[in-house]
Design a binder for these strands. Structure first.
Lengths: 197, 197, 197, 197
DNA sequence: GATGAATGAGTTTTCATTCAT
DNA sequence: TATGAATGAAAACTCATTCAT
């Protein structure tokens, strides 16, 4: 309310947009909550109910389920993407940076119920989601991998795509099983990359 | 029960039992074929159709889908289980034996369309399946792991259950993606186990 | 019940088939009734409710709406198809035969609420229906048209397909409008075919 | 409206009316374009988007879809209505005039994607549309029909309403089927009207 | 007046599972 | 025992229409 010096149509326009934005945030919150409770494949109707809106509203804001998931997790994906170069600059060695970065990625996947599973599903409806993840994170991972390979620390015959897919798979089902610690296994995987001196 | 040479109705009974067994084998063959074609979550109706029987017959022999999957793959699971001690005896080192055994396990999972995915699903209907796999294979894997740990080749802080679950996860979706080679990643994982000399 | 001398599995099999057939007839009757009341595009659920069965049952018997419509009207289509040659043999002139046959076709279309409309819809779901009608009736109509053309009674530049489509169109909406008599207009159309002596 | 640099309310009112008219024309153009592309049953949202206005604006100007269709095609309907007497005056015979007029009507219907179909729909929402067409064109057609009947050229037992409805029906689906030429069939219909000398 | 967000009924379709014959 | 017909819950998705801003 610092500035509400608008009048005429301006107010209407601004206020409409404000409301819609608020509503969208409500939707994202509700979706996030439902995703935690029932996984990212929860029925649209459940999310709508949780948000207290009609189903059509969900479809208006997020035409596909992938769009919704992306919106819900965008911040975290961005943070992960931006952390790549930063770690490379600050960590001791490229391999260490890679390990830390993968750790962030695991953090992300493991805490999102069912997201890892959906990342490997070949369901056509998730194409957008797949594309978003790959577009955003594969280049970052490639950079880290290249640096570590260039420094001679690791083998150079693994694509970022394959590594990320593997890490993603290792994270499937991790939340629900106390006897399974995805992070540990991912560490082994990264350790296994190291060039046998 | 070596001898159940019954007479009178007995002959009928024996023959009926024979028939039932024949029928069951038909079912298993059909299910295996459909699993290859459409994955282990194929509609029951398809399997029944392939076998030329009614759906009720499937349910009679295999009350749950898990029972059917177990029956279909039992032979291969048994073979895998039995290979453990054999490899330990014949391979150069325990770690090599472990690697070869895991390889067999990967062979198995990767060729069964969708089986790996179902192994990690937390769908209650698959409990029996999970239990069967774990009961049968975890002890074998434990033995290999213990031997390798005892020889000092690998770290000793990983449970067989966790390793197998990780390997299973790495195999998810491997058949359908040419850019993803599950076996490679599993090798990295096993390599990562090695104790840093 | 003239003959129920079946025993053993025979009875079960026969009785099952009998029941299914009875049920299918129930379905057809219900569908016919609903078609009359609400047109051939009535919701599947309505038909199921009318028949007192689940929706799945409709889908089992008739995978697409077109299949159901075909089944409901098959008898009448067949009768119409068979009447063609008969009329040609018994009527005074080929043109007269054509007129009478078209009349039968109109009888059929006009009494089926909404069927005519669906026959011209380009909805892909009705492809089977279109194909059935065309396959069955166009040849008959062609025969009548050819005979009348050969006798010099009518112009010879009109395809059976086009004529039938036109007749079909003229029948659209005829049931519900007392001021519109499709039959009269069809007569004009047929009269218009006559070669100007 | 040369000058709309208004201030003071009076001028504002005039200008508002001008704006509204301009807006309405934009709407009509957009609707016409969308009707051509997707038929007259296109979603309201599409039309609004095309016009660059909100959906509410469409509803304000044209409370029902029929109102919109009428507005879009009013000019052409008027032209058609006015052509009737003109043709009667200029053509050789009343029957020729009738044929030419019907031709104009067909021109109109055939080029409007889906309009013919909507003209026969018994959907209550189109009542206004039906009424408008009938009110405007039936009298014209009646005049032509009466003249031709009076001259002895044609039978006198057909109502204009019924004829126009028939012509409308014949035009259904004509744009999308190369094997179906509505104009030809309409010609047959008109030819069929001729009194058998 | 204009906007466009929200609503939610309505329809289709699929399959696991049961159970009468 | 075997059969397969019947069931009906579930879920996605679309759009006409309303109404707060």
């Amino acid at each position: 309310m610092v500035n509400d010096s608008d009048k005429g149509t301006g107010r209407a326009a601004r206020s409409k947009r404000t409301d819609a934005r608020r509503n969208e945030q409500t939707l994202l919150d509700a979706a996030a909550a439902v995703f935690v409770a029932s996984g990212v494949e929860a029925p649209v109707r459940d999310i709508a109910a949780r948000a207290g809106v009609g189903m059509g509203t969900i479809y208006r804001h997020f035409p596909t389920r992938a769009d919704l998931i992306i919106a819900v997790y965008r911040h975290q994906v961005e943070a992960c993407a931006e952390a790549g170069p930063a770690l490379l600059a600050s960590s001791g060695t490229p391999h260490a940076a890679l390990g830390q970065w993968i750790n962030l990625f695991v953090d992300f996947l493991v805490t999102k119920h069912g997201l890892a599973a959906v990342l490997q599903s070949d369901n056509a409806g998730f194409d957008t989601l797949h594309a978003y993840f790959l577009d955003r994170l594969v280049p970052v991972c490639t950079q880290l991998l290249d640096a570590a390979a260039a420094s001679g620390e690791i083998r150079s015959d693994l694509e970022a795509y394959e590594l990320m897919r593997g890490v993603g798979n290792l994270c499937i089902g991790a939340e629900s099983d106390p006897r399974y610690d995805a992070r540990r296994l991912v560490e082994l995987l990264i350790a296994g990359l190291r060039r046998p001196n």
